[in-house]
Design a protein around this nucleic acid. Sequence first.
RNA 1: GCGCUCGUAGCUCAGCGGAUAGAGCAACAGACUUCUAAUCUGUCGGUCGCAGGUUCAAAUCCUGCCGGGCGCACCA
Length: 577
Amino acid sequence: MRRLCSAYRGIEPGTVQCLRVPPPPADTLDRVTPDELSSAIRACLEAAVAAGELTVSVPDEIRVERPRQREHGDWSTNIALQLAKPAGRPPRAVAELLSARLVDLPGVKSVDIAGPGFLNIVVDTASAAELVRTIVGAGTAYGQNQQLAGTVLNLEFVSANPTGPLHIGHTRWAALGDALARVLTASGAQVTREYYVNDAGAQMDRFGGSILARLRGTDIPEGGYHGEYVAELAAKVREQRPDVDDLPEAEALIVAREVGYAIQLAENRQTLSNFGVEFDVWFSERTLHESGAVEQAVARLREQGHVDDRDGAVWLRTTDFGDDKDRVLIKADGEKTYFAADAAYWLSVRDRGFPKKIYMLGADHHGYVQRLKAIAACAGDDPETSIEVLIGQLVSVGGARLSKRAGNIIELKDLVDWLGADAVRYSLARYPADSPLTLDGEVLQKKTNDNPVFYVQYAHARLCSLANQAREHGVDRSVFEPSLLDHVTENALIAALAQFPAIVAQSAELREPHRVARHLEVVAGAFHKWYDECRVTPRGDDPVEDVHRTRLWLAEASRQVLANGLNLLGVGAPERM
RNA sequence: GCGCUCGUAGCUCAGCGGAUAGAGCAACAGACUUCUAAUCUGUCGGUCGCAGGUUCAAAUCCUGCCGGGCGCACCA
């Protein structure tokens, strides 16, 4: 398919590690986190079922949440409400069964049944705080999980045409897609970031024609590109090929197209790289045509019985698999369509060993979803499992839509120059892809604190500074006494840190990296409040005590979580600001 | 016309089956001799587009309507 003005995004080098410490068995809890409570509740449920006290199938997921109201305990679950009906018991009765077992767990201080049947759990301070040591020990690995272990997938994003610069529309996918790749990787998936380059077909000729027109001072051809960048490309083409002016029209056109293409692609690649986005594979559409892969694909699909010859054209019967209408593979004039290349591309993805491909497309391409799935179905693959299409709303700026052919586009390059890659990446990665997003060009240029990236980065920088201060004043981590972390702000901060791995796993599963950003804001907020209330370095000449040493552990754990989270978003974690 | 998608505070947006709907910005009032005030505390601000339905429980799921965006080529 051809991507005109939508954008995708890319992935980034920075790698995220994947490794995870398995939670201890429920009966040997030495620290208590929501993940572990979830497992423990499952064990309690299974025990209740085994004891014949309850007859239900234990659900796959038992959600343990941090309640909004502090009075509702450290963690709560609505599992009793959910199981009431299938178990044929009143919710409070189910809750009581669970409650009786949960209170006996080490680290659990109390369990209350509230309202219609919520279980509100209060955790022993030291058991909750024990997590801090775990985080510091895990370092950059904290947050990694094996939720998607064994998953191999090909993630395609950005894939902007090489006929012009990357603009703000592509930027959203670049930021989100790369973050998604990192989050997936952190959850154990094996991800290949791929960029499909539409470098074949009439659009490329129009591109070449537009450059040539600039070179010769003639009118831009119908359907050509008018942006000022075309003139700049023309100048660069002339620089590389001074002979272009003397060549006959047909040859000059090819030179303009090919040299312009090379320049533009290299530039876009550099722009993405500067944005922190690196692709593993740059897949050229041309290679599909040149290698005969397109013909082979048509033949292969024909063998599988899904190709018809009608009206002089060759059709793929995509309507067999939910598409609105059949699609032409080879036109009556013998020309292969983009759709044919798309089909060949899918087969290439399969042949290269990917059982699954995720496409990130702009809303202007949602019409492609059915036919992409139909291709897979025609090829004998199960579209439900092998193809996943994430549709994102287009970003608009000041109400104006962006078109590559109109002049006034905001380029990714310029955005980064104004705000820095971190601010741009973060401000795009903190919204779900399907959220309609309106960026105000005025605000964007202002570099105000509107942007929460500063809030999160500042928390990290503040923690680094705090650690330096602590060291200078003789506070070290020679002692860790978790029961001393008993301030309300410490309870809240530790809870936020404890949720991080589950947030990462959830972001990966739902393909919603923005959840990481939102949670980092929670962590940063909890930290700033803690900072305001609890000191790591003693005031004045006050002696250094174990509480200070222990708090330094919490500071390091907090810093680690912020750094790990920012890394998942491809955003820097500055040591000072 | 058909299809997809979105509609939450003045603005930009979270939340997407649970307990009094949240944040930032904006507005107003406070907190810096002490680890970075890019911070913190408080106040103000909402018929979660409208109407039905499912449920013990709906902003969240279903249906219809209204409104915005996008898509419906032997184009790329």
